[in-house]
């Protein structure tokens, strides 16, 4: 599997990272180098193996339904690059 600059641009769009056209070709080269190296995994026989998602081998704990958080609008808004009163503010979204 090999990435062309068009695919790089599609991936960059998905990741919301602006990529200049000139950059796309170079990135394609770098990413292809990494992917080619990764492809050594195709040698491994994984027939019948269950995928391992994480290292923690336990079931999930459930917390009680109690309100323990929130009520801190100044703290959750305090780092915002742009805010309007009690709201976060972003360039207008047109649907």
């Amino acid at each position: 599997m090999s990435l062309d600059p068009a695919t790089v641009r599609r991936i960059a769009r998905l990741a919301r990272i602006h990529v200049e056209d000139a950059e796309a070709a170079q990135l394609a080269g770098e990413l292809n180098g990494i992917l080619a190296w990764i492809e050594q995994l195709n040698e491994v026989d994984v027939e019948g193996i269950d995928p391992l998602t994480g290292a923690a081998q336990m079931a999930m704990r459930l917390r009680p339904d109690v309100v323990t958080d929130g009520g801190i609008p100044e703290l959750v808004l305090g780092n915002a690059p742009d805010r309007a009163g009690a709201f976060y503010s972003v360039p207008k979204v047109v649907e």
């Binding site: 917390r63 109690v66 309100v67 323990t68 958080d69 929130g70 009520g71 801190i72 609008p73 703290l75 959750v76 808004l77 009163g85 009690a86 709201f87 976060y88």
Partner: peptide
Amino acid sequence: SGAATEFGAEPNTQVSFVD
């Protein structure tokens, strides 16, 4: 998260750092 779910609260008052 432990933030409340009530309808109609003032904006961003039922928000934890997780949310």
